[in-house]
Design a protein around this nucleic acid. Structure first.
Length: 489
RNA sequence: GGUCACGUGGCCGAGCGGCUAGGCAGAGGUCUGCAAAACCUCGUACAGCGGUUCAAAUCCGCUCGUGACCUCCA
């Protein structure tokens, strides 16, 4: 919980319903690794709460207006409009293109789509209403056709800065002198609720204060309260949004709705590249489609979406995660190991043979299965879940290679083993096989030939088939109890 | 300058007072026509210096180092 810097027991306002709002992308460019981390982090929250039986309404917005290139001076260009001019497109064309790309990338990462995905431009009237309410409460003022939030006024009754732990009195005292374009604001900390549209602006709407467009922070307050109520359970986003974006959201809601909007704030940490923050302004960001194709100067290889997902999940969401080829290569191998185990687990059947009961194994499986749940309950600790899954996998593999008889576990423990492995890997962590089923059938057909050749001791043929499959990333496995295949690592 | 994080074995990365994290890489072994996979065994890690405690990677203090936020970014 960001505001109190603590872990807290989750208690929904209206169980079994849960309302969750997460800040989505500003669609003026392709999604990068950072977007992936945020989306995956809250996908895990969405999945796990759903897994626990909650009825989750997950709202994640698309910012398609109002996000300026220079928020502090309030003078910047709208990001979407700038891109539209640059590419000679309609602003909504830009929005649609990058929204589509975002969906494409997130789908590949196996991120569930939210329940509602509202756009800022589709909720102008709600935003105008909210501005009006804040004005009526006296926490905002109109100036030259724009409306600004009055921070000093608000701070007399509330605490602006409580989420990010900032002392606003200090900030007010340390006002910067050198900012231009501040004349409209009474105080540099005041932020825009509604901006007057300059003649060159492409996107604008009529309002009681003239033609203009909403401030960036406004959309989240307006849309979250519309779909989740004035107070809701979880609000998520990247750590970099804590201040000022989420701070402003709190202020807007408290000023306009008289209620603290969010019960639990959750912020995911950022991805670093060689120890440095990744960001557009630093020019070191990597787009997801570049990762998937390997087309980037920092990349030694292409990495699949599931490799990226696994990489993200191996660290706790509140830790920084450093990107490197070494780390991605390690994640790729680990993912393949896990997914090969998953394939086996899904096909494994209980065999009721004569076998001495292995109480130690039973006990360990029981513990590990429980530990998966406990780890998720403890602030979504996916890293620990993965560690437990690898330990469970050892049993799956032992049964598979007949090093352990399934009967020795008893049906109940066996089912617990399989069920935990499959459910947590697929449903909770959202890791899946990346190869389509058709592949399975094709390879099996080839393996029949392989088996025949082997019976005939035609080893040159055998080697040839194996080499051919290896070329396409399929590994043939000759085992004591049969022949099968796995993805090559 | 202000605020706040973090420094874990060759690498990534959990843990946050006592109980094996896990993965990758590496070494040895079992199995095997070969090769791989799988399984078993192996690393005496917690920036440094003090302190608290029966017990500290885990709490406190100092030092050093890295990073983030304070301006748009997930």
């Amino acid at each position: 919980m960001t505001e109190r810097r603590t872990k807290e027991i989750f208690q929904p306002l209206n169980p079994p319903y849960v309302g969750m709002y997460v800040c989505g992308p500003t669609v003026y460019g392709d999604a990068h690794l950072g977007h992936a981390r945020a989306a995956i982090t809250f996908d895990i929250v969405f999945r796990y709460l759903t897994y626990l039986g909650y009825k989750v309404r997950y709202v994640r917005n698309i910012t398609d207006v109002g996000h300026l290139t220079d928020e502090v001076a309030g003078e910047g260009e709208d990001r979407i409009a700038k891109k539209a001019k640059l590419e000679r497109l309609e602003p909504m064309e830009v929005v649609q293109r990058y929204t589509n790309n975002y969906h494409r990338d997130m789908d590949q990462l196996n991120v569930w789509r939210p329940s509602i995905e509202p756009r800022a431009s589709g909720h102008i009237s709600e935003q105008i209403e909210l501005v009006q309410r804040i004005l009526n409460e006296g926490f905002a003022y109109e100036s030259h056709g724009s409306v600004y939030f009055d921070i000093p006024r608000y701070n007399q009754q509330h605490r602006y800065g409580k989420l990010s732990g900032r002392n606003i009195d200090d900030m007010l005292a340390n006002t910067r002198e050198d900012l231009s374009g501040q004349q409209e604001k009474r105080n540099p900390l005041d932020f825009a609720l509604w901006k007057k549209a300059q003649p060159e602006h492409l996107m604008h709407w009529p309002s009681p204060w003239g033609n203009g467009f909403p401030g960036w922070h406004l959309e989240c307050s307006a849309m979250s309260s519309k779909y989740l109520g004035k107070q809701f359970d979880i609000h998520g986003g990247g750590m970099d949004l804590t201040f000022p974006h989420h701070e402003c959201e709190i202020a807007q809601s408290e000023a306009g709705n008289h209620v603290e909007p969010v019960r639990y704030w959750m912020h995911n940490n950022l991805i670093t590249i060689n120890g440095q923050k990744m960001g557009r302004s630093l020019g070191n960001f990597i787009n997801l489609n570049e990762i998937f194709t390997g087309d980037h100067k920092l990349l030694l290889h292409a990495y699949t979406p599931m490799t990226v997902r696994f990489f993200v999940l191996q660290a706790h969401y509140r830790s920084t995660l450093d990107f490197s080829n070494e780390a991605l290569i390690a994640a790729r191998k680990a993912y393949k190991r896990l997914i090969n185990g998953l394939r086996i687990a899904k096909r494994l059947e209980f065999k009721d043979t004569q076998a001495a009961e292995d109480t130690q194994a039973k006990e360990e499986i029981r513990k590990l299965a429980g530990a998966c749940q406990i780890a998720m309950d403890d602030d979504f600790n996916t890293a620990v879940v993965i560690a437990n899954l690898f330990n469970l996998l050892k049993f799956v593999n032992k049964i598979h290679t007949d090093a352990l008889a399934s009967a020795a576990l008893g049906e109940e423990s066996f089912q617990l083993l399989i069920q935990t492995t499959v459910e947590f890997t697929e449903n909770v962590l959202g890791l899946k096989e990346e190869q389509p089923d058709a592949l399975d059938q094709l390879v099996n057909a080839l393996l029949e030939l392989y088996t025949d050749a082997k019976h005939n001791k035609a080893y040159d043929k055998v080697d040839q088939i194996r080499a051919r499959l290896k070329e396409v990333g399929i590994l043939v496995k000759d085992m004591r109890n049969g022949i099968e295949w796995a993805y090559e690592e």
